[in-house]
Design a binder for these strands. Structure first.
Lengths: 293, 293
DNA sequence: GGCACGCTAAACGTCTGACACTTGTCGAGC
DNA sequence: GCTCGACAAGTGTCAGACGTTTAGCGTGCC
């Protein structure tokens, strides 16, 4: 830490690209390449766009550039790193897709360090989970178990901490009409479970629980579940909401737990349908051939 | 659904740029453009590289291309989308940095759909948390609370489920010498807490708990904590490990919980030091000026 | 016959330079 | 004083060229 005895040879050194003896690709402070010579399949040289991206990322993460601050223009970066603008742009694209920077056009445009945004994190994690689920790594069962840990605890905390406004939000979410068709049910209805997670006042609960719920939701076809079952679910939500409103932590937790256990059945039923269908599809696809040329 | 009376001029319209009729480029099933005219501050046209990236991402996520499968070459993609190769490359860079594809050089090179990799997810989440912590959104306290929920539960599950091999790993991690200087303490020592999380057999615990631990670790300067305190920590780990080995779920959970409560003190002490230092640094920086030209 | 060497080709990696598009700013004109 | 248009700074996109990496194959020597 603290060490910047290094003057500030930040930008230019790592890249040097075209000329001279490539600077040996700086030691790369471990973290990934731990095994000394284990891997045969080393990557010879990191492409320039990767080096540029890594350098910029590290500057941002290190706090050398604060949120909202503007990076040098692409032209300037390209000069500073000694690479072409295309290369710089590829690096910037990488940072953009990690939500580290945002880019605006026009005069006063440029790339700006993005403000940290929990929503994006939740989305990203959700999408990552979506990919992971249905691999042997991650089973539906694992998600259900995680949820069974998180949400009852969240309900308890919500009951202990929620202020009047938050309680209103929870109530509203519990009583939101389960609109038969409306796709954009508007914010207040942003799902009962999400609202409870947020009512803990601890963002970690939202960030851990929300992606799980999101993935589980995609596993549930609307039509796998009968209308009567939805009604039972809604009733459960209302009971939990009232426990939270009344500050009955224990009851809120217990009710949430049993609610989740009820839901588990639905998910497992849906899952078995799903795998059956998937297998059918795989068989079908094996029949034809590589489509994408 | 079906709000888009807009035909489907997604890719081609904004892109068409120079020449004639690009191949209309497959319908691309909506998914993003929802709000009809609600938002005033709409973004006029998404850049082509974003559209290409989104389309490819959606194809991958939808499963149209399976892990390991090869995407068309950049030249082919550029023809298919009716954009230049640079544009395609910017799109690919975005996907790469989301770990959705990997790119190889040489004959037989190309972009391949990446296999889902939990390790990457953990790293990404960790880095996202690192950015978020120290914002008003996320407090150290929140991380500690989350950990206090996750890890005792993990210890319990580990005690209930761990097989002989896993128990060995946990024991090894607990007894790994706390190397005074060695930075790469090698894998078995990959941290006791991580090992316990993995011993649950539920990847979700690792994916939720590991990033939290990682971030917390970075908050702890080695020298904030006295040697004697580390010894106590190690002793605690050994006790927990033995509980897990013995299958004593309840004891494992309780011991882990009290261990974490002990640690909390350390973290809070470190945090207060840290903020003091940070404030000093900020004052210092306000003194100087913008460095990057 | 077998092995080493070098050539070839397919893809990615990078560069150059140009032009189009966006958008805030500022000045001219009413 | 206000409106409108030109300007400028920056990003977005394109086209084409050349370098680099690497698997595969053919040739020639031993």
């Amino acid at each position: 830490m603290t060490p910047p005895p290094t003057p500030e040879p930040r930008l230019s050194d790592a890249v040097a690209a075209s000329e001279g003896p490539p600077p040996a690709e700086k030691a790369a402070p471990a973290k990934r390449g731990s095994a000394p010579s284990a891997r045969l399949r080393v990557q010879r040289v990191r492409p320039a766009y990767r080096q540029v991206a890594d350098e910029l990322r590290s500057q941002i993460m290190r706090g050398a550039l604060g949120p909202g601050e503007r990076l040098p223009s692409e032209a300037e970066l390209s000069r500073a790193f000694g690479v072409s603008r295309s290369t710089v742009r590829e690096a910037l694209r990488a940072l953009t897709s990690q939500h580290l920077i945002e880019t605006l056009r026009g005069v006063q445009g440029g790339s700006f360090v993005a403000a940290p945004d929990p929503t994006r994190v939740v989305e990203d994690v959700g999408s990552a989970l979506g990919v992971l689920v249905a691999t042997p790594y991650l089973q539906l069962e694992d998600l259900l178990e995680a949820r069974l840990l998180l949400e009852p605890a969240a309900a308890r905390l919500a009951a202990q901490r929620a202020d009047a406004e938050t309680v209103d939000a929870v109530r509203a979410a519990a009583n939101a009409p389960r609109d038969p068709q409306d796709p954009s049910g508007f914010v207040p209805h942003l799902d009962f479970h999400t609202t409870v997670l947020m009512a803990t006042g601890n963002l970690m609960f939202t960030m851990m629980g929300q992606p799980v719920s999101d993935v589980l939701r995609t596993q549930l076809d609307r039509d796998t579940v009968a209308r009567r079952e939805w009604d039972e679910v809604d009733e459960c939500h209302r009971v939990i909401a009232e426990h939270i409103a009344a500050g009955e932590a224990e009851a809120a937790e217990d009710t949430m737990r049993s609610h989740l256990l009820d839901l588990r059945g639905l998910y497992e039923r849906a899952a078995s349908w799903r795998t059956a269908r998937t297998e059918a599809r795989v068989r079908a696809r094996d029949g034809e051939n590589g489509d994408r040329t």
